[in-house]
Simulated scan of single mutants.
Amino acid sequence: MIYRIVHRTTYKYKNPVSLGNHVACLKPRLLQHQQLTQTELRIHPLPATETERVDYFGNLLCFFTVQEPHKQLVVEARSEVIMQDNTSPWPQQSPPWEMAAQSLPNDLSTEGLKAYQFGFESPRIRVRPEFADYALQSFTPGRPMTDALLDLTARIHKDFRFDSKVTTVRTTTEEVFRKRRGVCQDFAHLQIACLRSLNLAARYVSGYLRTYPPPGKPRLIGADASHAWVSAYCPGVGWLDVDPTNNLVPSNGHVTLAWGRDYSDVSPLRGLILGGGAHTLKVAVDMEPLNSD
């Protein structure tokens, strides 16, 4: 499957911005099942400087500075991605989850050492007894890690309602847990908090999810949205991706943009500005399939 993805972010400021330093995390990762054939970042006003680098987690970042006074900033990322059928099926067997948790600190393999850092608290995710208690309803004694992970994913999908009006990017996981409502970012943070509270390693994955219009309705350009899901580490098996928002295992309909400890590591666009005052933000995403299934 080939997708053309256009992610357009527009900031409108009440007063002129005299200087803006920004970081964009908008280029999909290169993975075994995901190839990036084309990528372009269009910025207006044109930046005075623009550089690229790979961050600690292997994500592709663009740093740019806008020195021209402006009351509007538009950042448009255009990518073309080839998604192969996921050749790694969900494993039929895995060790008990307790073994996975106990072995992680002693796993000196390259993958194990990389995974270990995702077992700790991060800026937006705390380890809490209430998260452990909720997770233990799925992670029962001796249960295989893969089975428990799928069960927790299904329970979050069932117990929490998708509601884009009750949370913001600053809403804490504890508040989401109390309200039982949120969006994909919140559900990903919650599931990671549950896993880390059991001493398991889990990372936050940002990207895009292919959506389908209602029967008989045309596909609306720009009506898609960015998405977030979870990747949990199981020693001897590897990373296992799950999508608690939709209760499914990601496939070639999920395009991976970046991953980190939580949203703060992979926010699409962040930075510092001088001036501007109040502002409005508009985001439009279009994920267009270029070939048929």
Rank of each mutant, 00 (worst) to 15 (best):
I5M: 11
T10A: 11
T10H: 10
N21W: 12
N21R: 12
A24V: 12
R29E: 10
L30G: 02
Q34Y: 11
L36M: 08
I43H: 07
H44W: 14
T49W: 08
T49I: 13
E52P: 01
L61V: 15
C62W: 04
F64D: 01
K71G: 10
L73V: 01
V74Q: 11
E76W: 02
I82A: 04
M83F: 06
P95A: 07
E98L: 09
M99F: 14
S103F: 08
L108T: 14
T110I: 14
E111L: 15
G112Y: 11
A115W: 03
E121W: 00
I125H: 00
E130S: 07
R143L: 14
T146A: 10
D147F: 04
D151P: 09
H157N: 15
K165D: 13
V166T: 15
G182W: 01
D186V: 08
D186Y: 02
I192Y: 13
L195P: 00
L209C: 13
T211W: 03
A223Y: 12
A225W: 02
A225L: 10
H227K: 13
W229E: 03
S231A: 12
H254T: 02
D262H: 05
V266Y: 01
I273E: 07
L274W: 02
G277L: 06
V283S: 07
L290R: 06
D293F: 12
